[in-house]
Write a protein that binds this DNA or RNA. Structure first.
Lengths: 141, 141
DNA sequence: TGTTGACTTAAAGTTAACTTTAAGTGATAT
DNA sequence: ATATCACTTAAAGTTAACTTTAAGTCAACA
């Protein structure tokens, strides 16, 4: 790693590149989710591509509804994998299972919502055309 | 509707039947999400099958990640459908779209998580068998 | 008769994940 | 010289969705 060629970013650049608010970046750092953020001679934060990658990873996990403390745990295990292979395996396995359950519930509810869309569309037509209102069973069957 | 035959439930019975805490039931009522909850001579709440159905409906919407204020809006529109058919259609349509996006993100992240499970499983094998560690690309490809 | 248990209320507390505020430093632009 | 801008900190505020607490009423049981 050649120190002279490490690309760095100010907090403002990172907010633009990642879409994450500066206050959130500081918050993540306080939490220990963003580590080893160096400072310049004015005490301003200096981020590297590794930080950008970490921020991206955090966003991914968040998309999977993983709470920040578990995300932090994940990176802690990753940093010392030999000693935490069982921990990290358990974490990703149980998190995957939780995610599957959540997705299943959401898919079910999506079906319900689509039925509602059909039902209320039919009612709207009936109102517009002054025809008798359909029943739920008419639309869903 | 024969008043004499309307089945009713105490708050405790409702918590058992729905799995919803009594404090939550009172909270929903405060929010206006649970309406027309009558009282007995001791001021204790009396729930009916309609309330049970509503509580079930709320749980469904929550499974679809719909915030309580939108759920409340939905039932308000439903109670006066002729005057709010466009509102309710917009609500269920946009909510369905949001849900689809959320599901899509979660499915993507589920893939990632499953890749991680495979990757860390392979590393665990390598540790157990004292063989060289696989790379990410070895496992995913 | 007393105490236990189920209910009531209003208000305060909790958790997650931020966001905002207030006060201050230092570099740049007019 | 001054004002503006980007950054800093610690601490307080925000939102959603509850949960807990404290204080009280009422009925049933030993």
């Amino acid at each position: 790693m050649d120190i002279a060629t490490v690309k760095t970013y100010s907090i403002k650049e990172v907010t633009k590149l990642t879409g994450t608010a500066a206050s959130t970046l500081r918050y993540y750092e306080d939490l220990g989710l963003l580590e080893n953020v160096e400072r310049d001679h004015n005490d301003n934060r200096i981020y590297t591509d590794e930080h950008l990658a970490r921020i991206d990873g955090i966003k991914c996990f968040k998309d999977g509804a993983m709470p920040l403390d578990k995300i932090k745990e994940f990176y802690a295990y990753e940093a010392d994998l030999e000693n935490h292979i069982d921990d990290i395996l358990h974490l990703v396995t149980s998190q995957t299972e939780e995610l599957s359950e959540t997705i299943a519930k959401m898919l079910k509810q999506k079906e319900h919502m689509q039925q509602k869309v059909r039902f209320y569309s039919a009612i709207k037509s009936a109102i517009d055309n002054n025809t008798p209102w359909p029943t739920w069973d008419d639309c869903i069957k």
